Simulated scan of single mutants.
Amino acid sequence: MNDPVLTLEGLTKGYNHGKPSEVRVLDGASLTIAPGEVVALVAPSGAGKSTLLHIAGLLDVADAGRVQIGGEDVTGLSDRRRTTIRRNDVGFIYQFHHLLPEFTALENIVLPQLANGATGSDARARALSLLDTVGIAPRAGHRPAALSGGEQQRVAFCRALANNPKLLLADEPTGNLDPETSDRVFDALMGLVRSTGLSALIATHNLELAARMDRAVRLEAGKLVESGAQ
């Protein structure tokens, strides 16, 4: 049996430690995501979704608890090793695309591959394949300013998957789009995820989008509980 792609065990995280005003955003949060599974993370703004995603993606450190990616305990690793795992095994998508404005859509997807040691021809071929999967290959030569909001976010999706990660973490990936565009772009994201077979944890406050994933978990009082959204 394959190891879970992501395991979170008893994560706690607070701010203003030891002070009367301390806020504990995570309080024993636990979650396991199987290979190929797409899980919705549902919670209102300010509940700790971003904090949980940052800890899961090794951008932040929990006060207590464990994180495993692909069966490897990554909790106490050095910064260098955490950076390597984050670059190779984790893809991030945010509400805003954060594309490099001076580069084309294609180049935005090629660059992280080159930084990871890919050849130019291989990186270009993968970038074009990803853009084709989300339906905007004809826009490959355009810079972000010449793309619509939905197109920009699709490029961001492709960039997140450029280095073939094991795990995709997305924080309100369609939250900056109008409802109609959001629906189309989410379809593109799910098609990309399913075609590559990776696992994903996607934060959203949209219960309709959550219901289209394999299952949903809700962040309540710092803990993760199964949601009835699915």
Rank of each mutant, 00 (worst) to 15 (best):
S182A: 15
L198Y: 01
E180C: 04
L177W: 14
S195M: 05
D187W: 02
V185N: 01
T181I: 15
G191L: 06
V185S: 03
P173G: 07
R194F: 07
P179G: 07
L192W: 04
F186M: 15
E180G: 08
D187M: 00
P179S: 14
L168R: 02
A170Y: 05
D187I: 01
K166W: 08
T181G: 07
T174F: 15
N163H: 12
N163S: 11
G197D: 09
V193S: 01
L192C: 06
G191Y: 04
P173L: 02
L177V: 13
K166C: 06
R194E: 07
T196V: 09
S195P: 06
D178C: 11
D178H: 11
G175C: 10
T196H: 09
S182I: 01
N163Y: 08
F186Y: 07
M190G: 03
L198N: 08
S182Q: 03
L198H: 09
G197Q: 11
L192Y: 05
S195C: 07
L167G: 01
D183K: 13
S182H: 04
R194H: 12
L177H: 13
N176Y: 14
D183I: 09
D178K: 11
N163C: 14
S195N: 07
D187S: 05
M190K: 10
A188F: 05
L168K: 01
A188E: 04
K166N: 13
S199D: 01
M190F: 08
T174D: 14
G191N: 15
N164S: 15
N176S: 15
S199Y: 00
L169S: 06
S182C: 05
E172V: 10
L192V: 10
P173Y: 07
G197T: 10
T174K: 15
L177I: 12
L177P: 14
D171E: 09
E180W: 10
A170F: 05
R184H: 11
P165A: 06
L168S: 02
K166E: 13
N176R: 13
P173E: 03
V185G: 03
D183V: 13
F186N: 11
A170K: 06
E172W: 07
V185L: 04
T181L: 08
G175K: 12
L189R: 02
V193P: 00
S182P: 02
N164K: 14
L177S: 14
S199N: 00
